[in-house]
Amino acid sequence: MKDSPEYQAELQDLQRELVLLQQDIANNNKRLLIIFEGRDAAGKGGAIRHFTRHLNPRAMRVIALPKPTEKELGQWFFQRYFLGLPNPGEIIFFDRSWYNRAVVEPVMGFCTKDQYEEFIGQVNNIEKMLIDDGIQIIKFWFSINRTAQHDRFEARKSDILKQWKLSTVDALAQEKWDDFTFYKEKMFERTHTLSSPWVIVNGNHKPKARLESIRHVLTQSDYEGKGTTGTRLHPDPKLIRPYDLDYLVAKRESDRL
């Protein structure tokens, strides 16, 4: 599919729609923040590259922070991430985000239990404040099965062009698979809200994941010229879906009774 003429044509039409979206954001001083999270090797970085390939670099940024410095470790946890928030007219792509503290850090022992609980207790309120201030937030979780992850790690080891992607966390991802699953589910349960929902992308097939994640972003905004390419904008619910949103809506209604 990746190299087929049909796929390339579909991808380019969706990228044209992204250009129209970016122009509308720039012209109207909107602010869009797209968070890419997920298991290692699930396709986050490749998806971001396909999102940004034809966008104006002066009106977008990709934020992929390295591990914190000693100085940053002494700061409020969110501080270094806030430097990457979108300015008026800008789209920001977070290649991993403050949600490192929800999954990777507790699994790998990079934070204490108190630091984890403090983060979980703050993040929903912080995102609400950002949204109330006019920032649109989209949160993706790229999912992948264990076999696909293993195969991609092996491919990275044998390809010098991909070896830079390997990390300490990658080396333990398979061994700690169940731990990652545990904290991932806890993250969904405690940080998926009606105003800032998690959107789960099936990353087992990278080309489809890229197309459907772009479609999701396009459906979340109105912009001038939307749909002029004639390509399908509505994402396939078999490949991308919100995390248990129906349950949250029903729970909110029951809480009012």
Rank of each mutant, 00 (worst) to 15 (best):
Y81K: 03
I25F: 00
I35E: 09
K2C: 07
D246G: 09
Y243D: 03
Q149G: 03
E105M: 10
V169L: 13
A41S: 09
Q79P: 07
R49C: 10
N145G: 04
P86W: 10
P88W: 02
T168H: 11
K206G: 05
H54T: 15
G38E: 01
K184P: 00
K165L: 02
E72H: 08
W164M: 04
S158F: 07
A102D: 05
M108F: 04
S97D: 01
P5Y: 02
L20P: 03
K251I: 10
L65F: 05
D3C: 10
K157V: 10
A148Q: 15
G109S: 12
A171N: 10
D179M: 11
T112Q: 10
R53Q: 15
G84I: 08
S196G: 09
N124E: 09
R39W: 01
V249T: 14
D24Y: 12
R80E: 04
I144C: 01
V62T: 08
D24C: 07
T228R: 15
R101T: 04
W198S: 09
P68F: 04
W177D: 01
E10Q: 03
Y183F: 15
R215W: 04
G45L: 12
F140G: 00
D244I: 02
S196A: 15
E90T: 09
K113V: 13
I131S: 03
P237W: 12
L55G: 06
F153G: 06
E17N: 04
A250C: 09
G109E: 04
Q174W: 15
G121M: 11
Y247T: 12
E10D: 05
H205L: 03
F51N: 11
R215C: 10
I34W: 09
P57H: 12
Q122P: 00
D132A: 12
G109W: 13
E253A: 13
D40C: 09
V104F: 02
K176Q: 07
V104N: 04
T228V: 15
P207N: 13
L33Q: 08
F110P: 05
I48V: 12
L85V: 07
K165H: 01
S213M: 10
K44L: 07
A47Y: 08
N145I: 06
T229H: 04
I137E: 03
Q23D: 11
A102E: 01
Y183H: 11
S167F: 10
L11G: 06
Q8K: 15
D170M: 03
N204K: 08
